[in-house]
Design a binder for these strands. Structure first.
Lengths: 203, 203
DNA sequence: AATAATATTGCACTTAGTGCAAATAAACAA
DNA sequence: TTGTTTATTTGCACTAAGTGCAATATTATT
């Protein structure tokens, strides 16, 4: 029993431990990304990352479970926002349109350089490329779960699974097309809209 | 100058070298798969595989470029057949219908036990799961190329990209649904047809 | 049989990742 | 402050995948 310091229960008033942990994790990610961009992914060892972040090699693994995981740092927040947006939509609109609108809105908020840099990095390593694909699969699953929350009729589940698959796929194809264009004029949002339009055309 | 042995040029009359190489590769794959099923993927070392196949550990890498690659052995032949079938279809039918029909036809020819065994294996290891996803991405690309061969109008390329994406996606979702069903009564082909039907419904 | 081309092997090496136990630092109670 | 509990950091030894290289063995060629 003994009093909880000041504020009760919720928001446990981040102590020194939590803060340092958060900062260290952030520092590792920043330092690693910088090294990746200069020396390449495969050319950067965990020893180098640990040294640059001021920790031991062993400690790295208490922050990230693998070298690959560094790249995924921060990306979860993005898809969480997308899901949050989607959960706010009305069940009256068509699921595919809802997802498209939410995606288009989100994609416009990204900075171009960051996206290209991270994407190029991912293309440079086999294991990162593989990791990227599994991430799409995970996102598809999350999206499907969210869709089921909004459109709750059980008889539509099979269709919603297809909507999730098609949406993540359209996003993937759109981003690939956007990345491959020479000169980078058109915004990613346009590629995304075109991809969803193409779906209707041929199907 | 100097006669080509007996038959000219084409089909260079497989010599001892080629035959042994083919046999060794086959033997490694068989032996490895057997070990994977008994000891698990991560529980099977390359040393064990090499020993069981009667080669040195170093030699393994002249047959497969990684441990993961063993699983993919033989799968290429399957997708090659699918592509070959597709290339025979007429440009008059709708691309998506053509792909669906070819897939349904192909999937019926698989033996159930094999599929389940390999699939369970893939689920058991992170790196194999990642590999499976990249394989889907590769198949999507191959399928897109084939579609462009049959339906040659440049203005339809964007749509064909979507058809490829959607088709591989439908197959992926169908196989996942088929695998997860308890009791394994319905054939995979039915799941595949339902998946393609669901596409039309919600889109 | 001699020679050229290719395959196999052993060896040393790098790197990612894990288990464990000792040392260190933060949180908490008196 | 001091002592105690609890979480974190670290070093060390280890496993296993994968690579480079040079020596050896095998197959092909003339």
């Amino acid at each position: 029993m003994t009093g909880i310091p000041s504020r009760a229960g919720i928001a446990p008033a981040e102590g020194l431990r939590e803060r340092k942990r958060r900062e260290t994790r952030q520092r590792i990610a920043e330092v690693a990304l910088r090294l990746f961009l200069t020396d390449g992914y495969d050319g950067t060892t965990l020893d180098a990352i640990a040294a640059a972040a001021g920790i031991s090699r062993r400690t790295f693994f208490s922050y990230f479970k693998s070298k690959d995981d560094i790249i995924l740092f921060g990306l979860d927040a993005d898809s969480a926002m997308l899901i949050a947006d989607l959960l706010k939509t009305s069940p009256d609109v068509a699921p595919l349109d809802a997802v498209r609108d939410v995606m288009v809105k989100r994609i416009a908020s990204y900075t171009t350089e960051q996206m290209i840099a991270v994407d190029n990095l991912m293309m440079s390593s086999e294991s990162l490329l593989a990791r990227k694909q599994t991430r799409y699969a995970e996102q598809e699953q999350l999206l499907f779960n969210a869709l089921c929350e909004v459109w709750r009729q059980p008889e539509r589940r099979a269709a919603l699974r297809m909507v999730a698959m098609v949406s993540i796929g359209a996003m993937r194809v759109a981003l690939a097309g956007w990345r491959e264009q020479t000169g980078q004029r058109k915004p990613a949002a346009k590629f995304l809209r075109d991809a969803f339009d193409s779906l209707r055309t041929e199907l």
